[in-house]
């Protein structure tokens, strides 16, 4: 009699643990955090000119190599602009057809002191996620290095 009772109790406990685990797993996936580039190691670290060159030679191949990867690019800052939603865009090497590094508004606030030091005409380095090429190559979720 005692044995049966403890088996039932064990089953109930296991069920409860199972349900809690399943729900927390679902909750986690549903609310999973965004990629945090500051915690990622760059797969490629290169000069913006090299990236521009790679995209000029073969866009499909360059996309295979760089798309969605964490990369660090460096080069001369040609223009800086802030959008309505407070995201900041730094254009490197060429204002029109260079590399555009976009910082999300939260990161603009977080790295304000570092960003203040970046001046047009000087070299800047950003780590971000390569989104591909339109006129310029777009690197998003950037963090100043």
């Amino acid at each position: 009699m005692m044995k049966k009772k403890s088996v039932v109790r064990l089953v109930i406990w296991l069920l409860l643990i199972g349900i809690v685990t399943a729900f927390s797993a679902i909750y986690y996936v549903f609310n999973m955090p965004r990629r945090n580039l500051s915690k990622e190691v760059a797969v490629y670290s290169l000069a913006a000119k090299q990236l521009i060159n790679d995209y000029q030679i073969d866009e499909t191949f360059a996309n295979k190599k760089y798309l969605d990867k964490a990369i660090t690019v460096r080069g001369i800052i040609r223009s800086v602009r802030t959008l309505e939603n407070h995201t900041m865009i730094f254009s490197i090497e060429d204002a029109m057809e260079g590399v555009s590094c976009t910082l999300d508004s939260a990161d603009v606030v977080k790295y304000q002191t570092k960003l203040d030091l970046i001046k047009i005409g000087t070299e800047g380095t950003f780590k971000g996620r390569c989104a591909g090429k339109l006129m310029d190559i777009q690197i998003i979720n950037c963090i100043p290095q």
Binding site: F30, N31, M32, R34, R129, A131, G132, K133, L134, I140
Partner: peptide, 15 residues
Amino acid sequence: SVLTTSFKFRRALME
């Protein structure tokens, strides 16, 4: 033209 990965959603899972 737009790069499709530049779209932001409310949840990372949706993205």
